[in-house]
Amino acid sequence: MSRSLRRGALAATAIVFSIAALSACGAGNDAQTLEVRPDNAAVTVDDVKIQNALVITQPEARVKGPAVVSATVFNNGNLPQVIESITLPGTAGTVKLAAAGGSGPITVPALGSVVIGGEGNASAVIENGLAEARTGGAQKVVFKLSKTGDVALSAFVVPSAGYFKDFGPSIVPAPPGASPTASASASAEGEHGAGEGEHGTEPSGEATTAGH
């Protein structure tokens, strides 16, 4: 075999191994692509940074029920701030805020952060739902803080399913014509029985203080 032919054969072999390696990276349950999460809304105003902002609706589009706002709010200032309200301009949705544990204002500590949404965290429940929002779209959300004032951003609207299930509404009514599921019934009983917050559970953590 001539030198030029040997070089061509080696090059072809290298290409085959490269393709095989790339294919292996995308195969199996532990594929790196399965770890990719969608980019979520974020904004920074003065000392306040809000990231991972979402509006999470019911799992089924045809089900009427509460929705929630989920986000992480950072305070890089030297003084604590209170989230006085969260509003959804252009909609009839009203948001009820509660600190971790289900009562009191949501305070973001100095040089710290607060997670809104998820068990044991602060909650922001859109009690009358959000009929105007469509899954896959974006909704303007305004956070009003005691010192910074209004901080606005556009949050993606997603259903309470898959990765977002643990951050979605705690009350999930059954679809029309279906019987309530055990989980939905238990969730509703837990919330009404506790009479506090979105999740009706004991807090597993408070606002964290972290240096930035």
Rank of each mutant, 00 (worst) to 15 (best):
V16D: 04
A11I: 11
E206F: 11
I50M: 08
I50Y: 06
A194S: 15
N76A: 15
A67C: 09
T107F: 02
A98C: 10
N78R: 13
A174Y: 01
V95Y: 02
A182C: 06
G118D: 01
P80M: 11
V82D: 07
T44S: 13
A71S: 15
S123P: 07
A27C: 07
K140E: 15
A178V: 08
A155H: 06
D30N: 15
A100N: 08
A122T: 05
L88C: 06
F74M: 06
V48N: 05
G8C: 07
Y163D: 13
T91V: 06
A131I: 10
Q32S: 13
Q58S: 09
A186W: 11
K147G: 11
L145G: 02
L88T: 11
Q81P: 02
V73K: 00
E60R: 13
T148R: 03
Q51Y: 12
F156R: 14
L10Q: 12
V172E: 00
P159G: 09
A9H: 08
K165C: 03
L111R: 14
T181V: 06
L145T: 14
A131L: 12
Q32M: 13
N29P: 14
T208S: 13
P89V: 04
S146N: 06
E189I: 14
G102Y: 02
A20Y: 10
H212E: 11
F164K: 01
P159R: 05
V73W: 00
N121E: 13
I106F: 05
D166A: 15
R62I: 13
P105L: 09
G197D: 04
E84T: 07
V55G: 00
R37L: 11
V125T: 15
T208I: 14
P176V: 09
S85C: 09
V63T: 14
R134A: 13
I50R: 04
A42I: 04
A31L: 09
S146M: 05
R3P: 15
D47P: 00
R7H: 12
G211W: 13
A124G: 03
G77Y: 06
T201K: 12
A186N: 12
A138I: 08
G90L: 07
P159Q: 07
N75S: 03
V82W: 00
I19L: 15
V108N: 00
